[in-house]
Every structure is written in structure tokens, then in C-alpha cells.
Simulated scan of single mutants.
Amino acid sequence: MEHLAVELLEHIFTMACTDGGFTGCSLSLVSKHVRAASQTARFHSIALASGSPPQVAQFTACLTTARAESTGTTPRVRHLFLVSAKRTIELQSRPKDEDDTERLKYIADVTELLRIIAPKLYTFCVIHGHRPLSQELHVPFAGIRCPLLREFTLVGSGRIDGSLATGPSPNYPSLTRVHLWFCGLGHTMGVHVRFPQLWTEHAPHVTHLRISNLGYLASDVIHPIKALALESEDICSLPALKRLVVQPAPGPAPGGRCGNPYTAYGRFLGNLQEMRHQAKRPFALVEAGERMSDFEGPAMREWLDRVGGGPGCWEFEAFGGEEIPLRSCTPRAGS
């Protein structure tokens, strides 16, 4: 290995560093030569999922040092998996924004990291809004521009609207696949009826849109989905969209009150089936999965599969003349 060209080693190490950072850390401990030769590749895919508020700032400092010391290709993060941090002290009441020092520090840390890596980022998976508000520090989105971003996955139920896409020009001109993965029956990241317009304006080349774990109470997003499927003229649709995939959330929990929830859920599934039959665009309806309490683990597995060249949640097969996703993001009932 000592006699191999550095360019060859960089290529080999890049192909190996697709596990979110573990291999990169291991390579840095092998020897001085391997540490230097793998400096670029070590940051190829990074997972910041500890939930610790200082982790983002610590990684940013590490990346900044590596970039300053680099004598060859500048280390770049191509794939990022980011989980929102947990508060060190759970709030008893919501403080004023200017008094929430822990939140302000976390926003500044994440903003600085994204400022450094966003121009060269290929895939980005974010998990936030999946904990109680009193325990979580949300990931900021305002002002992010990722010109090379190809795939974006957002998991959770935190608010996302116009703050995700700001500025006069498209923030995501290369984005082709968007996956919105909800964590609650009626909480859908604040996605409102304008979400197709927002993505059309800032990600005009999206070809695949997947919405997973869609709750039967999520009326704020069902109408836009229907408009996209039917190419309705009352909502500006994604012009390049080739595939729309929807996975409903599981039904009401057993043992609860009977009547309206079960009736509403049945009506919800019926509407999705009707939507699929009437769709003017390719529309795939995935079987509802089981209830989940852990979204981070499954999301990490999907992201790692994509980084490693796998299909992730975009795997399809021919079935009755229609392409049906093979993989649900949530395990199917009974599996």
C-alpha cells in the first residue's frame, strides 16, 4: 500500500467510506501515510446522529482543520445524515427566542456546517421534529442552497415551508428525488397546500416524490398530493415528476374508541385508492407499515443503502403492468 499512487488510494478509500464515517475514522488510525492518503475520502459520507448539541460544532472544527491541512484535493462531504439534537435540559415552558441560548447556539452551529458543505453535497437526510418540543433543538433550513444536491429526505413532523426554499434562484437545481417521511397522524412538517409550488420553484427537476407514513388526519397535504396525481390546474405542479409514491400510515391503534377514527381511516384509504386509479401520472400506493417509535434506525439504513449504490426506498418491480415499490420505509404488518 505504501507504494500505490495517492490518486488510486483516494479512489479506493472513497469507495470504502460509505458508512457514515466509521471507516473514515478507522483509516485515520492506521498509519500516518494512510491518514494523509485518506484525508479527502474520510469525509465522503458523514452521519451526525448522536443527538448531542456539541457534535455538529465538533465535526465542523474537525472538517475545517482537515481542509486547512490538505495539500491535495479539498476534503468534501458528499453525503450527510443529520439528526436534530436533544436539549441538555428539558424545558418546562417555552422561552423567548432571544433567551433560548442553547437553541441559538445550535442554529449557529448547523448553519455554519451547512455553509461549508452545502455547495458540494449530493445526498442529505434530515431527521427532526420527531421528539417533544420541550426536548428537541430543531434543524434550521432557511437560506440553504445546494446546487449539486440530488436526493433529499426529510423525516419527522417539524415545520417545513417557505423557510426551506428562500432566495430568487432555485436552491436545488440538481435535485431529482424527494422523500418526505412523516412521524405523526396529522403532523406533516407544516407542509401546506403550497408545497408543490415551493418545490417547483426551487427544485424544478424533481422526478421522484415519495411520501411515507401519511396519516389519515393529514388533510393539509392530501389535497396537494391529489393535485399532483391528477395534474390539477389549480396547483402549480412539479413539471418533471415521473413517479409519485405514497405510503399510508397504519390505522388507529386497537383498544381505542371505536367509530369515527376507524371510519375516517377507511375513507382515507378509499380516497387514496381512487386517487391511484384516476392519476394521470405514474402513482404507486405502498402497503401501510407497522407503527414505529424508532425512525432514526430505518432512515439510517435507507440512507446508507443509497450512499452505497443501493435502491433504498426507490426499488421497483413490474406487477400487472405497473411499477410497485418493493420496499416500504416502515416494516409491513406481520413481517
Rank of each mutant, 00 (worst) to 15 (best):
A47Q: 04
E7R: 04
K226P: 11
S38K: 04
D305V: 05
A318N: 12
P173K: 02
E90C: 15
P252L: 08
T207E: 10
V6E: 03
D100C: 03
F316M: 06
I116N: 05
I222K: 03
E201P: 03
P54F: 08
C236I: 10
T18N: 04
Q273N: 14
A37E: 02
T263F: 09
L114Y: 00
F295P: 00
V77H: 00
N213Q: 13
A61K: 12
P252V: 12
G162N: 06
S134Q: 09
R301D: 13
R103C: 10
R194Q: 11
S93H: 12
E10T: 12
P248G: 07
S70R: 05
D97W: 14
Y216W: 13
A36W: 09
G51C: 05
S335L: 12
L27A: 01
W199L: 13
E274T: 15
Q273R: 15
L198H: 00
E69H: 05
G251Q: 02
S169N: 10
R76S: 08
L214D: 02
A41I: 02
V6F: 04
V191S: 12
P204R: 05
K242M: 05
R210E: 09
V206S: 02
I222T: 14
I46V: 08
I127L: 15
L91C: 00
P170G: 05
D220E: 13
A279I: 07
V221W: 01
R78E: 07
W181F: 14
